[in-house]
């Protein structure tokens, strides 16, 4: 349904990829760890290898949680837009098929937050 307006009502999206100085947005959530209140937003170059995120970025963002140190990345399950998905750690984001504003999440089986509460 189109918006009711007087005259033309079309504006460039506020978050078009061009505005991010070469980066694109990627949202990452860690299931069962709501101690982190919401998924994170990151601006990454599309050329960045996926593994670099896991190794260099996530520890800074999720490392506070005692579970983080216990993650077995081999076992981690990944989802993209809610669907199961398998990243290639060695490939770039672009080559992993990640686009601007894609959202991915990971589950770490066996790790379910503080005292198993999902926090």
């Amino acid at each position: 349904m189109a918006i009711a307006a007087i005259g033309k009502y079309e504006f460039a999206p506020a978050d078009a990829i061009e505005k991010f100085h070469g980066a694109q947005l990627l949202y990452i959530g860690w299931e069962d760890h709501l101690l982190f209140c919401a998924p994170f937003a990151f601006p990454f170059p599309p050329t960045m290898p996926f593994g670099a995120i896991v190794e260099q970025v996530l520890p800074g963002s999720f490392g506070y949680h005692p579970d983080f140190a216990r993650i077995d990345w081999e076992k981690a399950e990944w989802f993209k837009s809610g669907k199961p998905w398998q990243p290639d750690f060695s490939k770039s984001l672009a080559d992993n098929g990640l686009k601007h504003k894609d959202v991915i999440r990971f589950r770490t089986p066996g790790l379910t937050g503080i005292a198993g509460s999902g926090s």
């Binding site: 349904m1 189109a2 918006i3 307006a5 009502y9 079309e10 504006f11 460039a12 999206p13 506020a14 978050d15 505005k19 991010f20 100085h21 980066a23 947005l25 937003a41 601006p43």
Partner: peptide, 21 residues
């Protein structure tokens, strides 16, 4: 959003604005 996407694409989202500098 789906009713009036033309409107909400404009949203000034603070996080994105920060990343845009």
């Amino acid at each position: 959003f789906e009713h009036e996407p033309e409107k909400y694409v404009q949203s000034w989202l603070p996080v994105h604005q920060i990343y845009q500098g």
